[in-house]
Design a protein around this nucleic acid. Structure first.
Lengths: 222, 222
DNA sequence: GGTCATAAATGACCAGGGTCATATTTAAAG
DNA sequence: CTTTAAATATGACCCTGGTCATTTATGACC
């Protein structure tokens, strides 16, 4: 598996599920409704923020009854999970990048995470919104949530690949537990993201990540 | 500054604010009421969980009107923040530990974090509850929240001390940015905590932390 | 086209968090 | 002891997320 620095564009301007011709009217309508809820809520969230948008507004704007909303999304919060999954999709759909493929492992990981960081930096408010999803990470795991589709899971998977390649190339200690190392990188990445989201002043998320990867590779101990 | 492994005992069996004799009747009553809310809600949370406890129940049990609750705590969630602050207090009130003080820096940090981890492991449900507080970390910072009292801030402060001592003793690279290193340790610690809280199977939080500190000290790179 | 089982839509309804105008208590001054 | 202003307590009320019994739309089968 090889990677590309991709453009995490416009989560909210998405990406409706595609209708196919051989679908029944029912299935088509269902998809249409779900898409409409998705689009309308994205629009409203952008305009007025998540907390200030009510289900009533969403359903009114989408031209459906309130109850119908809950046929498609179990809770208001769950909408965010869907947005987050969309973003995760972008991490997963990685393809080759001719420039990056020849960099040393450390630089590749750095470039990968820094690019991710930069994409988040472009829209702090949207990022805040998406990461409320983190809460779910904490609460009692609900069965309906697919772990494999979470951004966390996917990021770790990519890092794991990079580390294993690094070991093969002799750029990463063969003795380390790659799962643990990937998790650690992920931890630092997400924690820095959180701190950045919380911060008032504009410290640079991507620059911070850059420095921390150096630290992780070289170690703290003398 | 030196450290002790302390007993993070019983957050919910706390630790009321002390009334003093020279207080006016008003002040005494105020403190009494706040304490009662605190105690009653702790009791109810333990019995039925946070979500299943209503403000009505708390106020009824505490013998006050609903509105009064909101004179003391701005939201229901904010109660958890107070519980978390109590826990943070325990991190802050560190004193000497004769055994630990002579260990090498890496071992001291390890022992410190592992002990913390173990104290959380003793009550997973309570820990889950407290860390819903993490959510606030993400949302728009409210002015009333005192950063210095948060567990995160305090943990970093302690780690910073330990790292600086480590540099003096030549056990930690003098070239590193201690703030960044402390933040990284903190990140790994909290992220592992989160993953553990989320996990169904009982992987050992403290053992995981143990291994990850080795990784951080020795570095990933070859 | 008509019948019927089932999927989907509906909106009245409820519960619980949070507000606020009003009532009560306290403390200080005269 | 009264008066008065400020602090505190109160609960009726509002808002919004979420439920559910009922209605409506769909499509398989005849």
């Amino acid at each position: 598996m090889t990677l590309v620095i991709y453009d995490l564009g416009h989560i909210f301007c998405n990406s409706s599920i595609i209708k196919k011709d051989n679908m029944s009217l029912r299935e088509k309508k269902k998809i249409e409704t779900k898409n409409r809820i998705f689009e309308v809520s994205g629009k409203l969230f952008k305009e007025k923020g998540f907390e200030n948008t009510t289900i009533d507004e969403i359903t009114k704007e989408a031209g459906i009854a309130k109850g119908t909303f809950f046929n498609y999304f179990p809770t208001k919060d769950s909408l965010i999970l869907y947005f987050a999954e969309q973003k995760a999709e972008l991490i997963y759909d990685l393809t080759e990048d001719e420039v990056m493929i020849h960099l040393p492992t450390k630089e590749r990981i750095k470039k990968f995470l820094v690019s991710l960081a930069e994409s988040y930096e472009n829209d702090k408010d949207l990022t805040k919104l998406l990461f409320i999803e983190y809460r779910r990470y904490i609460g009692i795991s609900r069965p309906e949530i697919n772990k494999e589709r979470s951004p966390h899971y996917r990021l770790i998977k990519v890092l794991l690949c990079l580390l294993e390649e690094g070991i093969e190339k002799g750029e990463v200690k063969g003795s380390i537990d790659t799962r643990m190392a990937a998790e650690t990188l992920n931890a630092v990445y997400f924690h820095t993201l959180m701190v950045w989201l919380k911060s008032e002043n504009d410290f640079s998320f991507s620059r911070d990540i850059f420095a921390k990867i150096d630290l992780l590779f070289d170690g703290i101990g003398d």
